[in-house]
Computed example of a mutant assay.
Amino acid sequence: MNKMAKKISREPPKLIPVSPNPESIRHISGKKPDQVRFFEIGFDTSGSGISLAVKRTGWCSVNDWAEADSELTKAMQKASGGNNKNPFPNPSGGTYHPEGSPNGRWPRTGLSFRGPVQGGNGSLELSNQCLFVIRLASGQGLAKTDWRFSTRYAPFSGDGNIKDLKDIFSDAAFIRFDQNHAIREQPDEFERPLGIDPYASTDWACFLFDVEEARQKSNNDYVFRYNIHIEIKDRKKGNYISIIIDPDIGHPEGNSP
């Protein structure tokens, strides 16, 4: 087991205060995506408490960034239509697998995204450069304006060792919907102080995941932790509180697709 996988625990996703993070994912790789995977995450109140879960998913194959941006635009156009249908291509519901593989070899966090692998279920699994797109869902008592990606920090960061992971995680961006088109906005080199020229508010963001590098670093089966930087609205005070969600990407198992 590689040293990164050893850090994985069975703890649920943590919601902790955020501070400027030197491990922010800003590296521009020069690679291009060959697949896009969409994940809508939200709060689940069906159990004994409140937890985060994948609500809906989808995926599609692409050849480059232009095609990926086109698919992002289509999904955001559908999502802005006002109905509650899954806006993603090849849509499916989220499936919860907190323990990862059936034999428990790869313990996972409560919010786990399934990564592509070679030789899997048809074209769905065949990817070397996968663009992960995450949308923050409304519903379950949560309004669209109640949470958003950070307006002060990069949307994603590494889990303590970005130097080892920068060949795997790259090209992070906020995704804005402007004049009926999806616009990817790369985060700055430095964090933006509170109240000083914040990033535009958005509930969509993405990063590129190098599946080939992940397989090579971990003998095909892998689990990699990272952080999502979001802000949740304090309804009483009207301000937003910055927090971190720490999910993982791995194979085998995780949330579909």
Rank of each mutant, 00 (worst) to 15 (best):
D178C: 11
K78G: 03
P22G: 13
P33R: 10
L131T: 02
S170K: 03
G115V: 09
I16M: 11
P257G: 03
N86S: 07
G49K: 07
G93E: 05
Q35F: 10
F224H: 12
S218E: 09
S123A: 15
A200K: 08
G158D: 12
P247H: 05
R26Y: 13
D210F: 07
E189Q: 11
W65T: 04
G115N: 06
A66F: 09
I241Q: 15
A137V: 01
P155F: 06
Y199N: 09
D248W: 13
P98S: 05
I25Q: 09
D171N: 01
E11F: 04
P257S: 08
Q129N: 10
S256L: 00
S256I: 02
N121K: 15
K74F: 13
K6F: 13
K55F: 03
N103S: 14
S170V: 11
E23K: 04
Q77G: 11
K14S: 14
F149P: 00
D159R: 11
L124F: 03
N219Q: 00
T57C: 00
N21D: 07
F149R: 05
P116E: 15
K233D: 12
I16N: 04
K31R: 08
G141H: 05
G42T: 04
R108A: 15
D64I: 02
L208A: 02
D248V: 12
R184A: 09
Y199D: 06
K163F: 13
